[in-house]
Write a protein that binds this DNA or RNA. Sequence first.
DNA 1: TATTGTTATACTCTATAACTATA
DNA 2: TATAGTTATAGAGTATAACAATA
Lengths: 140, 140
Amino acid sequence: MPDADEQHQHLAAALIHAADACKRSFARAVEGHGLTHTQARALFALDEPQPMSALAEVLSCDASNVTLVADQLEQLGLAERRPASDRRVKLLALTDLGATRRDEVGASVSAQSFPSSRLDASERTTLLGLLERLLGPDAD
Amino acid sequence: MPDADEQHQHLAAALIHAADACKRSFARAVEGHGLTHTQARALFALDEPQPMSALAEVLSCDASNVTLVADQLEQLGLAERRPASDRRVKLLALTDLGATRRDEVGASVSAQSFPSSRLDASERTTLLGLLERLLGPDAD
DNA sequence: TATTGTTATACTCTATAACTATA
DNA sequence: TATAGTTATAGAGTATAACAATA
């Protein structure tokens, strides 16, 4: 097996492992707020109102699944569907409660021993930059 | 929200997103070989025979789930359970077919446009190093 | 008593396909 | 015809709890 192959595979394994650790840390931090990690990810993605399809891209899942997440966030009173100029489109937007909750959840996430606390600030910046290049303009 | 909080959250989001992209790329590459991405991850983890519990750690899942993965790999003829000196322990080991398959799958994974191809070799080395520090000695 | 692996079970995530309504 | 969102459904991943065999 060529070295390049092996590096790709180790990198993939490390990425998946690191993300699993992040997901679980995330999930633990947010479960006290009554949210699943998917709901929390959606919450953080809604700085601006987003079409459902845009949210699907952020969550890297099929659009059909966003319907459920949106339903859940609406039931919790954290987000609401709004009409858009193109009447096929629905914009999902945080409610005031949702924005408040997002900040509370964000504080919990950072407060607990998050995996990325093992890195210093400049390492985190480097890592973030590499990940963004990795994801690239058309990650999917 | 303090900057540090925000950086943690962006980093977590980027990591999860990157890993999702890797998982899907991985899954597409291995489905032609009749494997799920979990089965493929297990295959790559079995360079040396591993106790089921060790495999659970690599796959970052509960030990109870490894039973199913091991069953599947055994049914495919790719791995086998072997007794260990501690007779409570079962070692999962690749068969010859399993080792061959792992190399074939590895080639497929690298051959297709894998997300990490967007980075050059030295960037990949940097990324891998950061991820390993992130995971740390006791990532869970 | 504690630990390894197993079984049974339930919940979440995710994709596919068929549908509605708009464009 | 094509697109955004929805619904229904099925498969895969995951955790919890109770259990057997062994330490």
